[in-house]
Design a protein around this nucleic acid. Structure first.
Lengths: 334, 334
DNA sequence: AGAATAGGTGTGAGCGTTAACATATCTCTA
DNA sequence: TAGAGATATGTTAACGCTCACACCTATTCT
């Protein structure tokens, strides 16, 4: 910086002013400084800057299983939004979410002096871990349920699951079965709750819930169970599956059992992964607006960083929309 | 730090020594300092440290379309390995890879003073952009072809594609068709080359190549073309598809055309995405060891950072293994 | 015309850490 | 027991930047 100042014939402070767009620098001087910067390929030292401003311009993100479509998309959205806002993103991708691993991740990122933290708190345990974190760092929970005192940004799981269930009821199905995700996931719980509430509101019977772990394998198992039931009873005509991957497993199990979708049984998934449109048959599912989640979470976090903690607990909800394809139809008329 | 020193009754330098595991500190003193650190919940300022050591302990990663399974998995592997090595990871996820966007990403990360850079250079253009980057920063290319002068870490695409093609030939197929990825992707090119070379080595005819863009949609289109060919000619019995998502599109097209897999036509994919085992039918495919790629790329990069640029251009290759499932069988005997 | 104001620029200090050197204490050997 | 060497600790000076303030020049107002 001293070199630049010398070359431009000004003081280091003026160089600093140019770098920070300070208003009171003569255009001519500014021009001269910029030229010097360019000629010397000068780059300001971010560490020195961070040392004095006490701001690293870096945001930490704690995520879990980022190879799944949902988390990966959320992460992507966050990264885009952060970069647009001029912030760097430092990521910790956890293999398991426990109170311990989350607080380790917190320590790790705090050591890096991040300005704020986004925790993709998909699981109940992580939402709990969140409340245990020191309170002086701005934190936003993404997909977290009620993290007391922390702002939360999430997709409207409830509305999405309601739309899915309602779609099936509206087609004329007596009731809708449900294959849920692991119940320690808040999303799984929200989808389950919405499904049940929608059935109850329609005075439809509420069948037993089948449980999976998001994987196609468990969807397949659930599918086999439902196929057996289909063979003996006659009341399985519609299934709302908590994500697309499990829905794929279900489709496979039904195919093996000779059950036609959607002629005999209708299926709705959740996520709208890129493959969903090419499932056999193309899957009716619920699409989540991950880009909006990314934008909103960054916006809320930056607000917290700049204006300090707000008293009003915020909860920002991104839309989820039903995408109707070929896996749903009216029930068979016996 | 001064507070800690005062509380422990030592100088700030001794505190620094304890923090950096300097050998010559009396255990008793160390104990006292550690207690003071703990009591005051002291955290060393990473910016100040970076300022004087000229090391930020941060690695930059430039990636592209991180919602795809491959890049997301690679990223995950890199993050795990970096954290294990005590480094932070700062990510830039590009929407498009051009020479311009890569060099912008470089500037962005250079402004953050990263100690080194990993570029997931899946596309030819990014591999080229790589060579244009300033030479004073340690850089490792992941999945890049020959980035002159830069070390490269990649999956053995060639061996994987060879195994896939050979598997089909060994089953008795006269030849193997190929649906490639976009040819500006180095992986697509390597898989194509390996496929062609394997056919030629076996003196099998080399059919025209069909082209897709990795998406199920283009796989579907390719599948329709092949289904038409299947109806008129009789020479489509085996297809090697450059990734699993396109293979899904193919399966769908074949199903619509009434072509049975694997009875009439065998299909092999590439990637082994989690869904692949539940495709109709379960897909024979090639699995890539992304964790190894992550580990290796970090290892090579840290080597460069610590020992300076080496004269020997390195190329580290991670294994790809064929996973045989139910989408491949011997050709029909007419 | 003189004073008040605003715009443009320079000076010095300090952010919290580590490196280099200086100093004090201990241990071992001749 | 003296003195060399190792061990343990303290002192001072950077690292490269921004902040607070001081200063100087124009311009405007009374």
């Amino acid at each position: 910086m001293a070199d630049v100042a010398r070359r431009a014939g000004v003081s280091h402070q003026t160089v600093s002013r140019v770098l920070n767009d300070h208003p009171s620098v003569r255009p001519e001087t500014k021009e001269r400084v910029l030229r010097a910067i360019d000629e010397l390929a000068y780059r300001r030292n971010s560490s020195a800057r961070a040392l004095v401003t006490r701001r690293t311009n870096t945001l930490g993100v704690v995520a879990f299983d980022t190879t799944l479509y949902g988390p990966a998309s959320t992460l992507f959205g966050i990264e885009q939004a952060a970069r647009e806002a001029g912030y760097f993103i430092s990521i910790v991708s956890l293999k398991a979410i426990t109170s311990k691993s989350v607080s380790e991740a917190f320590d790790y990122l705090a050591d890096q002096s991040v300005d704020g933290l986004i925790v993709i708190a998909t699981q109940r345990s992580s939402a709990e871990a969140l409340t245990a974190l020191p309170g002086d760092m701005p934190i936003v929970a993404v997909e977290g349920g009620e993290a007391p005192g922390r702002p939360v940004v999430c997709v409207d799981q409830y509305a999405g699951a309601t739309a899915a269930t309602k779609h099936l009821l509206d087609l004329g199905h007596e009731t809708v079965w449900h294959v849920s995700g692991p119940l320690d996931w808040l999303e799984a719980e929200a989808r389950l709750d919405a499904w049940r509430a929608t059935l109850e509101a329609a005075a439809a019977p509420v069948p037993d819930v089948l449980h999976g772990d998001w994987s196609p394998a468990t969807g397949y198992q659930a599918g086999r169970q439902l196929a057996r039931r289909h063979a003996t009873h006659d009341d399985v005509t519609a299934v709302f599956v908590a994500n697309d991957q499990m829905a794929l497993g279900l489709l496979r199990a039904f195919q093996e059992a000779g059950i036609q979708v959607p002629k005999e049984v209708s299926i709705v998934g959740f996520d709208d992964i890129p493959e969903a449109a090419y499932f056999p048959p193309p899957l009716t599912t619920v699409r989540q607006d991950f880009a909006a989640v990314g934008r909103d979470s960054i916006a809320v976090l930056l607000d917290r960083i700049e204006n300090g903690p707000s008293d009003a607990p915020r909860r920002v909800v991104a839309p989820a929309t039903l995408v109707v394809r070929a896996s749903t139809a009216a029930p068979p008329t016996n």
